[in-house]
Design a protein around this nucleic acid. Structure first.
Lengths: 373, 373
DNA sequence: CTGAAAGCGCTTACAG
DNA sequence: CTGAAAGCGCTTACAG
């Protein structure tokens, strides 16, 4: 600002970008014509089109979509806010979203909340300033609808993934929802264990107040009820949905006699943690105790033992989320609110031995590890 | 377009957004004043500022950063292009980048190439149209510098992470580089195995022509050379850097007599695959064969056995990448090109038994599994 | 088919 | 401290 040598102002300025105008002048046509070429309008004569395209090529013109968005008042960006990118399930989901958006000419604006609702508010606010065409939100735990509504406003299409927003019905605030069939998934896992002869089956991990955990517990209860089995209170173990916490709480399963011989876990992270905890307690998951997960993250297939789990194909869910959102964003008239529940399927692996092989539920005894085939 | 009822045009139009102008009029000041308030200029009287801020609050004004970027000719977005989001190492890296960018008021434009250079070109092109303040690129395998230069141009700051671009020196094309100390990491892993008494140590997995693989092989060779050991050609096994491929090639280690008793693996994915392959061949990694990885992905700690590996703290690398890029993007004068090699450290776990416990390298024999403590 | 003009929502000198 | 005017790089009617 001060002391600048006269005429030196331009020295630090960034080189002027090449614009539509430059192309137009070089070709002796108007800006409007070049703009039409850019958007493949049939109004332009082929010869003119070729001349313009050649010039753009020659000078390395890059389209300024920011300017176009401003004028058109619609943006080709979609915001994606993820609760936990370091969880492979959500990372795959994000990859799927980006893939499908890219295929339709959209770009992904990423934000991550690290499971903090406060951070989520900030991130949503910052992304909104870029006026995205829509928002895909995989909410942090116990996100409130009113907060999200406040950040997103009423005019930007919103798709919520995976978890319900708490206090769902803010007035006039609508959004689409894409979830997993948690009830059916947990039901399938439980029924599978029942078929293998297990009768004392725990539901392990997760926060009971989260919608996904509540639904999975429901599926579990339904399956046991259908088998005429009463759930015992001590079979329900609550933990944060992390490997570490699950590991730490494994002994809760064996606090009393007639302990469970199997556990339906809230998700894979919890299941993997529980398996470590079991090993610590002298149990051998997959040999004398059965464990199931939920998500089918890549670690599930490769663990020892490989984990029987419920597969939700997060990448496909990501693509689906992107498509649902873009449908709404480009709908000429307001669409009705939609709830889509994606099906889910059990993937059978080795972590679920028959009940006959399970160890009786009394105090831990040293027990030689059975060699698996 | 056609047949619209007269006067009905507004029906389908999106509701007009609230702008600076609306705020200015409501407060009886000029647009310029409101703009100054927004950017916390000291030029505005406190009373005026409060009045303006209250009005923005009241009507739910959201700043249009797109318009601001256009006028200012600088954007608050940084593009992040990732080769493989489903690899937890890169997902963590992305999370770190987003975290650090967000802290500085920037937003992340995400793109993923899925290890395809063709897709990477498309993605870079599409992101460039949003005129980001800079680009962070974790390149797809065998990306060529000339292609990247063509897509990114010479004016947008670029930071390349993890892998060198092939044919590095396009004329006038400069970029910063953030890499891992691959040589030191592989050296540490090899030295650790040597200290445990191993003498026949393989280098397993990876594509030899990739820069990171070449560097890791170098570290491995250096360590063996320091111990006076000649590398035998059959100890070097090349595979795609995936779990599947590594699993499939495990038997290459045992093709001849005096097979290795340990393997330094290109990365964790390969190490986990190799461990599966070993099990298939009747070997017991962690008991009669030693394996090390590279990356320390979350699966490493939790596997059976837990994997001794080289930790590169991808989240911290992501933050570092963001900071390096923003330094350049906001530098008043052109900075010299920088190469930063991040340190890396060995994390000792159970996959690396002493050589004394390793099985002699002859044909596989049935061998009772040793119970671990 | 093509051109001249206005405008998207901001910021930036320049006056007062 | 505040206002009037111009401009960022596009697109959009509107004429010709």
């Amino acid at each position: 600002m001060n002391r600048s040598k006269p005429g030196s102002g331009a020295l630090l300025e960034k080189p002027r970008r090449i614009t539509l105008n430059d192309i137009a002048q070089a070709c002796g046509v108007s800006r409007a014509t070049v703009s039409l070429v850019l958007r493949n309008s049939p109004l332009v004569r082929t010869e003119t089109r070729h001349r313009v395209e050649a010039e753009m090529q020659r000078v390395g013109y890059v389209y300024n979509r920011v300017a176009a968005s401003l004028r058109q008042r619609v943006s080709k960006a979609v915001a994606l806010v993820i609760n936990d990118l370091s969880n492979p399930f959500f990372a795959e989901f994000a990859a799927g979203v980006d893939e499908a958006l890219g295929a339709k000419g959209y770009v992904t604006l990423l934000g991550s909340s690290n499971e903090s609702t406060a951070r989520q508010q900030q991130v949503l606010g910052s992304l909104m300033e870029h006026h995205p065409a829509g928002i895909i939100l995989s909410p942090a735990e116990s996100s409130r609808a009113a907060d999200v509504a406040q950040a997103v406003g009423r005019h930007t299409p919103l798709l919520v993934f995976n978890r319900e927003l708490a206090d769902g019905e803010a007035e006039g605030f609508g959004y689409d929802f894409l979830g997993l069939d948690n009830v059916a998934g947990a039901h399938a896992a439980t029924a599978y264990l029942l078929a293998k002869g297990h009768r004392r089956i725990a539901f392990f991990g997760g926060h009971a107040q989260s919608s996904s955990c509540a639904q999975r517990r429901q599926g579990y209860r339904n399956a046991l009820a259908e088998a005429g089995i009463d759930v015992e209170a001590r079979w329900m173990v609550e933990t944060a949905p992390t490997r570490l916490e699950a590991n730490a709480h494994a002994d809760a399963l064996f606090a009393a006699d007639r302990a469970p011989t199997a556990a339906v876990c809230y998700n894979d992270a919890v299941a993997l943690g529980l398996m470590l905890g079991l090993a610590r307690l002298g149990r051998h998951p997959g040999l004398d105790f059965a464990v199931t997960g939920f998500d089918d993250i890549s670690e599930a297939a490769v663990g020892v033992p490989p984990l029987t789990t419920v597969n939700a194909d997060p990448r496909a869910r990501g693509r689906q989320a992107a498509e649902l959102l873009l449908e709404r964003a480009s709908a000429p008239a307001p669409l009705p609110r939609r709830r889509v529940i994606a099906p889910v399927r059990l993937t059978e692996r080795d972590s679920t031995p028959d009940a006959a092989d399970a160890r009786p539920g009394d105090a831990a005894v040293s027990h030689p590890r059975r060699e698996r085939p």
